[in-house]
């Protein structure tokens, strides 16, 4: 997936940034006026595998697309490895878009 940056003709919709906080937070999505934010908590990310990081990135992208938490699949909360979209979020996607 490519996220288009700001140009003279387009406005960036989503900004990715790192935060550092000694907490159980892995990452978050924040809707703002202008560019929304997805942040990853370096405190925990440094201790995670690449596949666990990908899960968090996909999870937050899911929030950015308008999906809420679910008890299974990529929108389930928690640290686990997941690098592909599950059927549930695909169904949600086709329903929403």
């Amino acid at each position: 997936m490519n996220i288009a940056p700001d140009t003279w003709a387009t406005y960036e919709d989503l900004t990715f940034k790192d935060i550092l906080e000694q907490s159980t937070l892995l990452g978050y999505y924040q809707k703002l006026t202008g560019s929304d934010i997805i942040a990853f908590n370096v405190f925990n990310f440094m201790k995670m595998t690449n596949d666990e990081r990908k899960k968090v990135a996909l999870h937050e992208m899911g929030h950015a697309l308008g999906f809420g938490h679910h008890d299974s699949g990529i929108m389930r909360q928690g640290r686990f490895s997941m690098t592909e979209l599950d059927e549930h979020i695909k169904e949600d996607y086709y329903e929403l878009y």
Partner: peptide, 17 residues
């Protein structure tokens, strides 16, 4: 109100976690 959607080390809806 600006609401934030977080992901945590655990499933935060489960007390034991």
């Amino acid at each position: 109100i600006s609401e934030i959607y977080g992901d945590f080390v655990m499933d935060a809806t489960k007390k034991e976690e």
